[in-house]
Computed example of a mutant assay.
Amino acid sequence: MLLTPELVALTLKDVRDDGPEPGWTPITDAEVDGLVDFIEKDAGVDPIWVFAYGSLIWNPEFEPAGRERATAYGWHRSFSLKIERWRATSAQPGLMMALERGGRCDGVILQLAPVRRRDDLRALVKREIRYRDVIDMVRWVQVKTPHGVRKALTFWASTKRAGLTMPLSQESTATLIANACGEGGSCAQYLHNTIVDLQAEGIRDRNLWNLQALVAAEITAISTERRSETRYVNQA
């Protein structure tokens, strides 16, 4: 992989918390509880499985009662959600990964432990859905697993009705990812961590693999330009 930890380190910097995402409305505790109620009612007595395709693979923040490889057909990963907080700023926006329609997405499903189901589900919803505007991007998807087809909950699954995402060219995507960093780390770090964990699961996403090479080249070019500027200033 060309996007090495050394290159990722070049994208990291200390960034202050500038508050909520501009233009979005923070979700209230009552709205979180309402969304959890809806999910639990929809699931009924069946186990709740969560389809993880990005950061939830390497940082679920709950102890799964079960874990299986899974494929969601009709969806694919895409850095298509523009952000100005967490791993980006208003001065240097970045991109977050979402599911877009078409293709296939290989990932894993994680089962919420029955004894902690509501508590873990509430914590997960509160982590993933911080704004009222993105509630529509929580949905159930059908996934194929070694044990058959399962219904799984997933987050940031884009719909045309939501209108929150806009897929870009890989070159434009790479430029945004290479430059963006916020209080939660950099977009390049997020991309690197996702690919590493996908590889650990035996998953190779061709689009992400191509993207990391472009991001690595962009970071290298930025670093080279900065060194040249520093030398020029020192000589002047």
Rank of each mutant, 00 (worst) to 15 (best):
D197Y: 15
Y232G: 08
D17R: 07
A88Q: 03
L164W: 13
E63H: 15
F155S: 04
R227A: 13
L110K: 10
M97Y: 03
A98E: 04
E68V: 04
V143M: 02
T11Y: 00
Q235Y: 10
W58C: 07
T25G: 03
N193D: 14
M166S: 14
D136K: 05
A88H: 08
Q199T: 03
E31K: 04
S186K: 02
G54I: 08
V143G: 00
D120G: 03
T71A: 11
I39R: 02
Q212G: 07
L35E: 03
I27P: 09
F38S: 15
Q199C: 08
Y190T: 09
G44M: 05
A43D: 05
G184E: 09
G102L: 07
D205T: 06
D120R: 01
L95S: 00
V196F: 05
D37P: 06
P20E: 03
A152F: 13
D46M: 08
Q170N: 15
W86D: 09
E40C: 10
L95M: 09
A113H: 12
V134C: 13
F79H: 07
D205A: 04
G185E: 00
A221L: 14
D120F: 06
I203F: 02
A9H: 01
T71S: 08
V141I: 15
F79M: 14
W209L: 14
R227N: 14
F38G: 12
S172K: 13
A30S: 14
I109T: 07
G94D: 05
A43G: 02
V36C: 14
A123I: 01
M1D: 12
E171H: 12
P47I: 05
D120E: 06
G54T: 10
N234A: 15
V15H: 04
H147M: 02
I27A: 04
F79C: 14
L110Y: 07
V141D: 03
F62H: 05
N59D: 08
E201D: 12
D119Q: 12
G54E: 07
R132D: 00
W58H: 12
C105T: 06
A65I: 06
G103K: 05
G202N: 05
T71P: 00
A216H: 09
V8F: 01
E40I: 09
L3D: 00
Q235G: 12
F38A: 12
A200N: 12
D119A: 15
Q212K: 06
L176T: 01
W24C: 09
D37W: 04
